[in-house]
């Protein structure tokens, strides 16, 4: 009984934090609540949100993906390179770079699931490799000059709604669908909760892990495409440190870092909090470095809360 009440609180608390944060920034700065600014926030968080779906899967099985940022950078550079230097059509460039992102995710999955490397090391290595690869490919300078139609993805609107927000919404919906309606979702929770019991229930644990890292790569790639379209220029450091924000969104959204517990709906709240926090701090002229300090503390609080939950949970069992 106590357990259910605790879970209820845990489930809803994050939305309360979001509302409080929103009111606080609204009170502190009158520019914050303008329609213009709210859409800016929504556009800004869309990339986090898209990548957060893949990261949610990864963290649900008790893993971690540090390669997200460099996959984003690589996708920026590769898609730009294909369009500008090799005259690929927009569609062909997008598909090719998404395939590449998925392939890198699969490489992570292979190392973690088949070779049994610790996820933190395997994805750290790919992060470094592809960060370097992107830099080499771009020659260290931005690539730009795309077909104007490409801008639509990151800067366009459907009615009053920005296209990236629509893409994020679809991604979240797909993520929620996979988690709640398909058996893969059941497997993710099972594997995250207890790998050996999952294996003994007939789940191909290695295949599940492999797939999840591949998906995480794919969603990072999608976030990369949106970013490229927004900035309209491929920067050789476009995604640097991106995984940090994405991990914070997910953990803030109540996905347990030890695996097995979490919901997409709360990850949406976590993502919005990071968006509001970043935007609000910019409006209040908080320096980039101070923002880093604040975000780091937020991550500690989120993980700390999760660890305390786990500790009391274990004590009960």
């Amino acid at each position: 009984m106590k357990n259910t009440i605790m879970n209820q609180i845990r489930d809803k608390a994050i939305w309360l934090v979001l509302v409080v944060l929103f009111i606080a920034f609204a009170a502190a700065n009158d520019k914050f609540v303008s329609a213009n600014n709210l859409f800016t926030i929504a556009r800004q968080v869309s990339m986090f949100g898209i990548a957060a779906v893949g990261m949610t899967f990864v963290i649900l099985i008790g893993g971690i993906d540090l390669a997200t940022g460099s996959i984003i950078t690589l996708v920026n550079v590769v898609a730009a390179y294909l369009m500008v230097k090799m005259n690929f059509s927009i569609i062909a460039a997008i598909i090719t770079s998404l395939m590449l992102a998925t392939l890198i995710g699969s490489l992570n999955g292979f190392m973690v699931a088949k070779i049994k490397m610790p996820a933190i090391i395997a994805t750290f290595a790919t992060q470094i490799i592809f960060e370097g690869a992107a830099y080499i490919m771009s020659g260290g300078t931005p690539i730009y000059g795309f077909d104007p139609a490409f801008k639509m993805i990151g800067q366009g609107y459907v009615g009053p709604v920005p296209v990236p927000v629509i893409i994020m919404a679809i991604t979240f919906a797909v993520g929620a669908f996979i988690l709640n309606k398909t058996y893969f979702g059941r497997y993710f929770y099972a594997v995250g909760g207890n790998e050996e019991a999952s294996r003994l229930s007939g789940i191909k644990v290695n295949s599940v892990k492999f797939m999840i890292y591949a998906l995480s790569g794919f969603f990072a790639g999608l976030a990369g495409i949106v970013m490229l379209s927004r900035t309209n220029s491929a920067q050789p450091t476009a995604g640097k440190g991106f995984e940090f924000d994405v991990i914070t969104c997910v953990v803030l959204g109540g996905v347990s870092v030890s695996g097995g517990y979490g919901k997409i709906s709360n990850v949406i709240a976590g993502t919005l909090i990071i968006g509001i926090l970043t935007n609000g701090m910019v409006l209040m002229n908080v320096s980039t470095y101070m923002q880093m300090v604040v975000k780091g503390i937020v991550l500690i609080l989120a993980v700390g809360f999760d660890s305390i939950q786990n500790k009391s949970g274990l004590a009960k069992a």
């Binding site: 398909t182 058996y183 059941r186 497997y187 099972a190 909760g193 999952s198």
Partner: peptide
């Protein structure tokens, strides 16, 4: 090794047959 403690009774009972009760992976 036996039960998935953090998962519901319903999901535990179906865990070994999800591939059989799903179409195109949808349960």
């Amino acid at each position: 090794h036996g039960a998935l403690l953090g998962v519901s009774v319903k999901n535990n009972i179906n865990m070994a047959i999800y591939n059989r009760i799903s179409k195109l992976s949808v349960i």
